[in-house]
Amino acid sequence: MDRIPILKLGRALLVTVQVDMHDRLAMALEEDLSEKIVATNARGVLIDISGLEIVDSFMGRMLDNIAAVSRLLDADTVVVGMRPAVAITLVELGLSLTGVKTALNVDRGMALIGTGFGAHDGADDDGVGSEDTDGRVEG
């Protein structure tokens, strides 16, 4: 079965979801991520969903679960790049993903990881978190 690849960037894990996932694929991602957080001792998980055209309640729940599990494993989860139409639809659907942090793009998301509670306050004017993205990329 297909798997969504998980990349390691410094002490963060990056998942870029680009395909319309069927439910089993989404569940496999949840499992893979939990194992990888422990195996790599990651401090944060970035889930880039800028490629997703919809997020329904199933996928919303998956994002919430990933955030809850990683919190137990001492890692922050940041959902990155949600499209406007997807955000409007999720709100209408009744999902607010209160457990996850969000960021406009991967750079800002990187800056959020490990910066404590307040969202969006770790961002500089330019080159946000550029040193973090220099980390070695491992499969």
């Binding site: 055209e53 919809i54 997020v55 329904d56 199933f58 499209r83 406007p84 139409a85 997807v86 409007i88 639809t89 209408e92 659907l93």
Partner: peptide, 11 residues
């Protein structure tokens, strides 16, 4: 937005 809403409902 309407596309996204109806696709999500269908899903």
């Amino acid at each position: 937005v309407d596309q996204t809403k109806i696709i999500t409902a269908a899903s």
